[in-house]
């Protein structure tokens, strides 16, 4: 298969494959929408005066929202009918502010019953803001 294409089956996953990158612009409206859907009203995500007073550039994107887009990068490539997300470990390295974010990843290990991916999200300045290890299993 051509690297970057959507998978037809788990067996196509090979070490070193790059996931098709996903570019997203996260707006303040997205944060409001996510806060309502996730019931997450922590002030860091909506109280700009508080965040500016504390020295941050802006309100910060919910970590889980940024990671949800990283997961979309995975499920757009390996649909839930092909692979299931078994586990993941995600680290929020630095605050992600509303704006452009690019998500990507690479297959670090692949076997018949497991694939381990290294995922990342970077801001418009090119800084990695979030990284994750994620394990996929074939849908049985």
């Amino acid at each position: 298969m051509i690297e970057g294409q959507t998978l037809d089956g788990f067996a196509q996953i090979a070490q070193g494959m790059n996931l098709p990158p996903l570019e997203v612009t996260i707006t303040r409206a997205d944060l409001v929408r996510y806060a309502g859907a996730a019931d997450d009203y922590v002030a860091q995500h909506w109280d700009q005066p508080m965040m500016l007073a504390a020295g941050f550039e802006d309100v910060v994107v919910h970590g889980w929202l940024g990671f949800a887009h990283m997961c979309r990068c995975v499920t757009n490539w390996a649909a839930p009918t092909v692979a299931t997300i078994d586990s993941y470990r995600v680290r929020y390295l630095r605050p992600l502010y509303p704006g452009r974010v690019t998500c990507g990843g690479i297959v670090e290990e692949a076997s018949a019953d497991k694939a381990r991916l290294a995922l990342w999200a970077q801001n418009i300045a090119g800084d990695k803001v979030t990284i994750a290890d994620l394990v996929l299993r074939p849908v049985s």
């Binding site: 860091q44 504390a54 910060v60 919910h62 970590g63 889980w64 990671f67 299931t84 997300i85 078994d86 586990s87 993941y88 470990r89 995600v90 680290r91 929020y92 605050p95």
Partner: peptide
Amino acid sequence: NMFLHTADTVVNYEP
């Protein structure tokens, strides 16, 4: 006066 969410580890057993 401030806290940040810095990591998550999730293991899925069933959908």
